[in-house]
Amino acid sequence: MANWAEISEGQELPVLKKNCTSQQLVQWAAGSGDFYQIHYDQDFAKSTGLSGIIVHGALKNAFLGQLVHDWAGNNARIKKYGCSYRGMDLPNEDILCKGVVKRKYEENGEKLVDVEVWTEQANGTKTTPGFATVKFL
C-alpha cells in the first residue's frame, strides 16, 4: 500500500501480470454484462474476420484499475482514470499492467498523484495507454 509521504515522481508501480483464460473472459462477460460473442465463441470471432477470440477492452481498463488499487490501497481513492484501446490482446498471452508516477501535488486541500498506466504485451507493444489521478486520504 503506497504511503503519500514516500511517493515520488518517476516511481514505478508494481507490475500486475495478467494472462486471460477463456474462463476469465466468460466470467468477465457475466460480471460486466457484455456478452458479445467475439470474446468467447471462436467460430463467431473468426466469422467477423478476427483470428480468434479477443480480450474485452473494458476488462483491460479494469485491470489498470486493479493495478492502481493494489498500489494505492484503501487509504486512497481513484478520482479519475481512463485508457484508450489501441490494440487487441489475445487470451493465453501475457498482459503486463504497468504504471509510473508522473506528478505528486496538492490541490484544493487534496493530496493527489497522477500516474501514467498502460498494458504491455510480452514483446513490449503497449496496447492500452491510460492515466489515473489518485487522491490520498
Binding site: Q24, Q27, A30, G31, S32, F63, Q66, D70, N74, L137
Partner: peptide, 26 residues
Amino acid sequence: GVRMFARSVGHVDPVFYDVEEAKKAG
C-alpha cells in the same frame, strides 16, 4: 454484483469480497 465483477477481473483485496473487511477499511 461487486463480487462477480471483482472475481472476473482477478481482484485479490478482501474489501471487494468481505463486508467486514470493507467496513474496517472505511
